[in-house]
């Protein structure tokens, strides 16, 4: 810390009024900000993240990440294992709240409101920011009940017919309707892996979220099921904003418009997907996408 203060002596003088801790914090951020290469802002953002730090106990997992999630865009987050991309994704709908020792600082805004504001209700946040997980996790209930669960707890349907409509629409959007329309009362856990994952997507979109977070949605699926999900993601982009974490660079290249590369908890580079994969600006990004490590 001493070193940083020395390097930024001028800044320290300007911030006389602030407490030492605050100064240290800002200096650390100044120091880190330079690391992200590329355009982290977009013209039409759906979510705005600024200076996000995440700590697990004493250990810091995310360092000063600032990133915009563009509206009706797919943003892919790539990087080697343990780089913090999933952790960052889970900040966007406060799934990290379930971990006791996890602490998030910085600002994440949606509709000009800080989602970590204590006045904001996390239930309503998760209704507008849905999530699809790595392992398909349908409830051990019928296909119908799986999709109906969200609308039911949020009181979205006025009548049974309305609920049926919501479920049909959601399953249609998830591309699953034709496969399951005759067996809605059968358990969701009886479907194949790819179908289960699409059921989870249908469950997520049944509450009409604006943003869908996907945490490696295809890592447990075979190539055919993966292709279907990727196709689906491309279709969903029309109506939803999607943030996807993936280990597969080909997948990121296929489905996303923007790509963010994470390394050791830091956001190294972010930009148009084409640019990232054809002309990476940062050495680490280049090494990663050319397969030199990861």
């Amino acid at each position: 810390m001493e070193e940083i203060v020395n390097q930024n002596g001028a800044v320290t003088e300007q911030l006389d009024a602030a407490t030492d801790a605050e100064i240290d914090m800002r200096l650390v951020r100044e120091n880190h900000r330079s690391e992200t290469v590329g355009e982290m802002t977009v013209d039409d953002p759906r979510m705005i993240c600024r200076n996000v730090d995440v700590y697990y106990g004493d250990k810091q997992a995310i360092f000063n990440v600032s990133l915009d999630i563009g509206k009706n865009q797919v943003i892919a987050m790539i990087g080697p294992s343990g780089c913090g991309k999933s952790t960052f994704l889970r900040c966007l709908n406060r799934m990290n709240d379930t971990i006791d020792i996890c602490r998030v600082t910085g600002v994440i805004k949606m509709d000009n409101q800080d989602i970590y504001d204590s006045r904001l209700d996390v239930v309503s946040l998760r209704a507008s920011v849905g999530m699809v997980f790595q392992k398909p996790n349908p409830f051990p209930k019928s296909i119908f009940d799986n999709v109906a669960y969200g609308p039911r707890i949020h009181g979205l349907s006025d009548s049974d017919t309305h609920l049926n409509e919501i479920i049909e629409r959601s399953l249609h959007k998830a591309g699953l309707w034709d496969e399951v329309k005759d067996r809605l009362d059968q358990p969701g856990t009886g479907l194949s892996g790819g179908q289960q994952q699409r059921l989870c997507i249908a469950r997520a979109i049944a509450v009409s979220p604006e943003v869908i977070l996907m945490d490696e949605p295809c890592s447990a699926l075979d190539p055919i099921a993966t292709a279907k999900i990727e196709e689906l993601i491309d279709e969903l982009r029309e109506n939803y904003t999607i943030a996807i974490v993936t280990h597969s660079m080909q997948q990121a290249a296929r489905v996303s418009q923007r790509t963010a590369y994470f390394h050791l908890g830091k956001l190294i580079e972010v930009g148009e997907t084409d640019q990232i994969f054809t002309a990476p600006r940062h050495k680490l990004t280049e090494d990663y996408i050319t397969g030199r490590f990861g």
Binding site: N93, M95, T98, V123, S124, L125, R126, A127, G130, M131, V132, F133, K135, N137, P138, F139, P140, Y149, G150, I153, H154, C200, R203, A204, A206, V207
Partner: peptide, 23 residues
């Protein structure tokens, strides 16, 4: 009970109480 069930319920916006009682 696998944590993925809890995540699934929380992910669609169930409160912790609903997650426990429903699932």
């Amino acid at each position: 009970v696998p944590p993925s069930i809890r995540e699934a319920a929380l992910g669609v916006g169930a409160s912790p109480m609903q997650t426990v009682t429903h699932h």
